[in-house]
Nucleic acid binder design. Structure first.
Lengths: 221, 221
DNA sequence: CCAAAGGGACTTGTATACAGTCCGTCCGGG
DNA sequence: CCCGGACGGACTGTATACAAGTCCCTTTGG
């Protein structure tokens, strides 16, 4: 979209993802407008987009809040995501070509490098991950699936999951991508789907374990 | 949403669904504003919503058009819908209660009456259908799934499919709903999912057959 | 005759003013 | 002390004016 509207969208979005705007917090259009240095009109546009992505929610009287996800919501989202990404993997397997495989390998190599650092480079890990999944989606060649998954993946909770990973999880994640490539080489859609399903589910449990550690933290922490 | 915005949304939407606004046609905000008797602001809101539903599309310079679906797009949408509705049926089976089953029966009874008329009452058929699927979604209890399916179902092509059905198809559709209830009574999620999958796929073929009849019509028609 | 440049009509983007609605607070009565 | 209603601030919805960008047609030069 146009400049002011884009700026508003990007600014609000990054503030939500970073947690600077906390879940449950009310978002007044005028305040956001001032924050982004634009008028209310593009802010309203931005909020519409963020609402579609479920990053913000409205109450019955049209006031807007940063979406507050219960653990159930998170489970719901991961569940659906596992199913849809599994489906994408299966579709991609059917349309796989040597050259796409090469691109997938390259993306996964990024991930490999990121986890070999003394302290894993989480940003690089995420970027490699993103590329891998993007190539896969592109190959699956379903506009709707792509649109749906993009909104599911770009959630704060999903996004931050990798930060909860320990080294072993990062390595396993990399290994699963490698295995996916193997499934693609054999054009085995069922295998690819199964790996992907397991891949996402593990990510969910990494999240929920970390969540439990953090919320049922030592009393007085 | 608020009054003017809602009116704009409803008006434009119904004109697209009815075909009065044809696929590919450009939608100028000002013209729509006049058509709906409101200013451009609520029209822009409405277009955003319709864009999220994929009823309208934008080109790279932000001009808006009535979405034009290729047969591939339709296949893609039905495919995804089969998968998601199947999933919903499975989830619903796990949470089924006698009272929900009673409601499903009631909705299906409407469908039964509709097809027993000398000439099937398509509107009543659609309404019963809608209720059945809505109850099912509500029981599946996944906010995201509900949101996604609602956008998938409310498409012109999906919506008009029933008008292409012959009497036999209507009867079979009703029968599948009855079978779904049986699966729910046994809380057999796998069975429910399988029926639902087949249910949606058959709807797709009914559509694509009709499409073929209409587009590869007798030369000179 | 074709191609590229220019200009004018049209469409969308943004700012702003005003109207309508909601929410909390404060005051008075029971 | 508690409850209810009215007032005031704050927020969102809508209309409108103006700015910026796009499209298309015409015109001009090769």
């Amino acid at each position: 979209m146009s400049k002011a509207s884009d700026r508003a969208y990007a600014q609000i979005r990054s503030r939500i993802l970073s947690g600077e705007l906390a879940p449950g917090e009310q978002l007044a259009e005028e305040a956001l407008a001032e924050l982004c240095g634009v008028s209310r009109t593009p802010v309203r546009d931005a909020l519409r987009r963020l609402e579609a992505e479920l990053l913000v929610a409205r109450n019955d009287t049209q006031r807007t809040f940063v979406a507050d996800w219960s653990l159930d919501d998170v489970a719901d989202a991961f569940d659906l995501r596992a199913s849809l990404e599994g489906r994408a993997a299966r579709l991609a397997a059917a349309r796989m070509t040597p050259e796409v495989i090469a691109r997938l390998r390259a993306a996964n190599a990024l991930v490999g490098q990121a986890i070999q650092q003394p302290v894993a480079d989480v940003a690089a890990f995420l970027e490699g991950n993103r590329q891998f999944h993007a190539i896969l989606l592109e190959t699956a060649n379903s506009r709707r699936l792509t649109a749906l998954l993009n909104t599911l993946v770009e959630q704060p909770v999903v996004w931050r999951t990798a930060h909860f990973y320990d080294q072993a999880s990062l390595v396993r994640s990399h290994g699963e991508h490698t295995e996916l490539v193997a499934a693609f080489e054999r054009r085995d859609g069922d295998w690819a789907e199964a790996i992907m399903n397991s891949h996402i589910r593990r990510a969910y449990y990494a999240y929920s374990d970390a969540h439990r550690r953090l919320t049922i933290a030592p009393p007085g922490a």
